[in-house]
Design a protein around this nucleic acid. Structure first.
Lengths: 337, 337
DNA sequence: ATGAAAGCGCTAACAA
DNA sequence: TTGTTAGCGCTTTCAT
């Protein structure tokens, strides 16, 4: 094991005081260039590295950012968070931070986790995901003036209450719907989640907007269901049975789309009247599943989103007024539509 | 922001010395029960939490475990690590540890990351994944006596050089092959990775063993290819064209299986001679994609594996002689076979 | 069973 | 520009 090299060792070898070493590393401009050079050489030579625990005791900064990791859910959508997490790990490292993981079952448990973490590891900031209406977590952090960013906009509050990065979901479903319109589809239905969820309502809105733009009426063309493959299948069957003119299904997630696609690709389903209808389907999130089965899907720029989250959190940590950012998604067109 | 409560505050309110508070928390048996009770009440009342940085300075233990997070790869197999990571986060929390994330592009970079981390955050231990032949990382950690576990066995060294947990891949492919044999298949091919990778060779071996057990000859029934959907498709096409009697394909991954399935489900493919052959396909890892498309696949008990990793690492941290553990996978049978 | 003293490695404040 | 002092909060001696 490499023996622990302290700032005192460097100081002794370099023939300067401990403080000069600290300055050479943290406030270079205050040290004479040649002294600084000498110190850095010794640092290199001895393989010195600052001890964060000791630094933390003085400065109160841990260089740690905490983020919650969740169970994989149905496994289809988990990959979105995972890609975000990977991107964030790299962005954070670039800014001199490391990610600290925790789990929590709900908002209240997560707030309890905040307290545990703040008391123990003292993370400098938090990155929250899955924001929702009346998010208790953000209010809690806000009340205490703790630095954080959310990946996901605030759904019940003004846009500037806290820094956030999000991907424009309605622009995504709008693009998907417009793609279908351009392909000649005229009766395009939407399968989404029960209204009340910010993300879900936003995605529905994009579809509605695109239809309105083409002078089409959305009435009767929308279904609300929990997220899941079987749910998507049921909703698709229901829609296609109820309305024989539907030729395309825009879905709020790849899970739903996967179920819908199953119906759409059935050779001779119950809802099939006389003529064969080729049903186009689009999903959301561009998960590996979409890629695997040729599902057209809305892609979120997750690596970029993670980088911008880190930017904004960095500003919050510096006290610089942060902001927020709505990133555009992109449509990945595959065989399904 | 909740003001920082220190051990001195607790001591003052409880009317004891700082040391007694520390003892009440860390060495309860040395404190009179009533004193201890009083201290714990005050701890609760003030919301005191030990400051890990300060503790770390004295004890040298950070209560941090470092683990590398990788890019998602082709996205199909990334989910295996993600489920493991989630399980590990929970197991670690249960043992009083948190996970610290880092990234590294290769073994050497990862060793550099070890050095950075050890100098800065001083993690108490490491969890390594993706072990391989001549793994430079394990040797490096071993040389320095640093605590770690691997998820994945040592492929070039004796089983007891370091603690590890792994899932028995050969048992998995063997089970898949036996399932196919039981279903009446007699010519069962294998699509795997180029030999030389421990995991890949192990998975191939299970298939071979099952064939041998049934008195069947594996000659000409195996293909080696990089991991990927297109690769699996090409290999499947090649096998089925070369040998019209093949009726089942055992694959080393869900990615390969996905490609193979594409060929198997083609209505009237080039390799199809006269009679229609229904080709059975099995994958490995039971990823969300497998579930989504009805692919029979070998499931790894990842939550359990994570928990056992934490157990073994905990022992390594205590100095208790650890061990290793080979967990059995299970076959999840779906429509594809 | 409890208390006092010391010091982990670092950097903010001040002195030289 | 460089050096000295002090102390962050905790726990490991050692003394009481």
């Amino acid at each position: 094991m490499a023996d622990k090299v302290t700032i005192a060792d460097v100081a002794r070898v370099a023939g300067v005081s401990r403080q000069t070493v600290s300055n050479a590393l943290n406030t270079p401009e205050v040290v004479r260039p040649e002294t600084r050079q000498r110190v850095l050489e010794v640092v290199e030579e001895l393989g010195y590295r600052v001890n964060f625990a000791a630094r933390q005791m003085r400065t109160g900064r841990s260089k740690l950012i905490a983020i919650r990791i969740d169970p994989a859910g149905d496994g289809v959508n988990g990959s979105v968070f995972d890609r975000f997490l990977h991107g964030l790990t790299e962005s954070a490292a670039g800014a001199g931070y490391r990610l600290l993981l925790y789990t929590a079952a709900d908002d209240q448990k997560e707030i309890a986790a905040f307290q545990d973490l703040l008391g123990a590891y003292e993370p400098d900031g938090f990155v929250l995901t899955s924001t929702h209406h009346k998010d208790a977590r953000t209010s809690w952090l806000l009340e205490r003036g703790l630095p954080f960013v959310t990946f996901g906009r605030p759904w019940s509050e003004p846009a500037d209450v806290h820094p956030w990065v999000d991907v424009d979901g309605s622009a995504g479903t709008e693009a998907a719907t417009e793609h279908l319109l351009a392909a000649g589809h005229r009766r395009i239905a939407f399968i989404g989640w029960p209204s009340g969820s910010g993300v879900g309502d936003d995605r529905r809105e994009g579809w509605r907007r695109a239809l309105a733009g083409a002078g089409l009426d959305p009435a009767g063309l929308s279904r609300e269901t929990p997220d899941g493959i079987a749910d998507g299948e049921a909703a698709a069957r229901d829609l296609l049975t109820a309305d024989p003119d539907i030729t395309a299904l825009v879905c709020a997630s790849d899970s739903l789309a996967l179920g819908a696609l199953h119906v759409a690709r059935s050779p001779n389903p119950a809802w099939h009247a006389e003529a064969y209808r080729r049903i186009a389907v689009t999903g959301f999130d561009d998960t590996p599943v979409a890629k695997a089965i040729g599902l057209t899907s809305v892609h979120q720029p997750l690596t970029d989103a993670a980088a911008r989250c880190m930017d904004l959190l960095g500003r919050a940590l510096d006290g610089t007024p942060p902001g927020n950012l709505l990133l555009p998604p992109s449509l990945v067109v595959r065989q399904s539509a």
